[in-house]
Design a binder for these strands. Structure first.
Lengths: 221, 221
DNA sequence: ACATGCATTAATGTATACAATCATACGAGA
DNA sequence: TCTCGTATGATTGTATACATTAATGCATGT
């Protein structure tokens, strides 16, 4: 699937439009005309149509037959809902990972944490971009480690949805430090095969992220 | 979206192939050739391609660039995972519904329960088809009532995934009776605005379905 | 006999052409 | 003036044609 998204025009068009919707370039109720998009991206209507059909399935676009495609986008409430659900699901994920994680995955998560701490130790010159990327990788590995295609799929989708929101929100150094500490605790619980603890920690980890969002004046309802 | 799936060729092709995968007509690793599918369905490759791209996004098909589309399907473990996650999410759904449900939705769920009991009272001549359809409608309304696009979307997807599995598994009259009783309890809790109770009941409702599956020798790991 | 390279073939990837549908504007009639 | 019908333009829906890529088989050389 990654190969496909990488190499085919349709896949790239899909990613591009998706990003443009999530980043806010295209806004709610904007009409997405196939010909216009194709011209802008330098491709024909065919790949654009494929992309729009995929986006509709994802719920980011609404297609009215013989009329057109309209941006649905995701609201702040949607993002808040996603975090609420992630809190539950990441807990379940950590619980399942206790039974399914491999040594390689444990090592990879360990390494990601070390890299994160290294980034952080740079002091005020640390790259927020790098930190969020590492955070993303940590969660991705955890998703894989659950041993469940289904759960991994849902969580990966959710994660990509809120990615732009995270980028736009300033990540405080304080929050980054605490986040990494929480990652370490989660990893420790999984290593110790303590399912109960792993679930609770992963659960609370997301709740803490939500508290942080709230503090920054994020719409919660 | 329903209009789209209904009226356009691409939408119908998508639904058809999706059903054929979920029902087992196309099995794991089967190759889905665009031309062959188009010929079989009496359409050109274009709508078939759109459908395959959508199915890939859903995880039911894997596309290897310049090679072809292969059925991924869903395993018994996948279905089991879905029920596990549904247990969590339906709980959350019922909790949220307590705050967002409308009078109309309450009435509709009430009516669905009455119709279900009517079907059941027919005795041994009751239609399992009808019962499962009503069960589906009950849950759909509940999903809507959560007031969350995101949650509703995920649960609807999950529900459609396990639908074929439910059809193939014999629904015992005993289980149907208990299921309707549980629906009544859930509805009662929501009416009473008892979020805690609603969540717990919805949660357990799915767990009971899982126990029933297990009793029928369903693979759980 | 086996490996390698090229030609052939069949599939997908993309673009374009044609058909069907919908929105808009204009004009005729009440 | 208002309404309804029609014509026109624009957009989507579908089919087909062309380009590109990958697999297969055969021939050739070692």
């Amino acid at each position: 699937m990654d190969d496909y998204q990488e190499h085919s025009l349709g896949g790239r068009v899909f990613q591009k439009i998706r990003e443009d919707i999530l980043s806010g370039k295209y806004q709610e109720h904007d009409e997405l005309r196939e010909a216009a998009l194709g011209k802008e991206l330098g491709v024909s209507r065919t790949p654009v149509r494929e992309a729009l059909r995929q986006l509709e399935l994802e719920g980011l676009v609404t297609i009215i037959p013989n009329r057109g495609a309209y941006v649905t986008g995701i609201s702040q409430k949607d993002i808040w809902d996603i975090y609420s659900l992630r809190s539950l699901l990441e807990g379940m994920c950590a619980r399942w990972a206790v039974e399914h994680i491999t040594e390689e995955q444990l090592d990879e998560m360990e390494e990601i944490i070390l890299l994160s701490e290294f980034q952080l130790k740079k002091g005020s010159g640390f790259s927020a971009e790098q930190i969020t990327a590492l955070d993303g990788r940590f969660h991705d590995v955890l998703y894989e480690a659950s041993g469940s295609r289904i759960l991994s799929h849902v969580l990966t989708d959710f994660h990509s949805y809120v990615q732009p929101a995270r980028k736009s929100s300033v990540i405080s150094e304080d929050r980054a430090r605490k986040s990494i500490r929480e990652h370490k605790q989660i990893l420790r619980a999984i290593r110790d095969r303590d399912a109960e603890m792993a679930e609770q920690l992963a659960n609370e980890h997301i709740l803490h992220v939500m508290q942080n969002l709230k503090k920054q004046g994020y719409q919660t309802d």
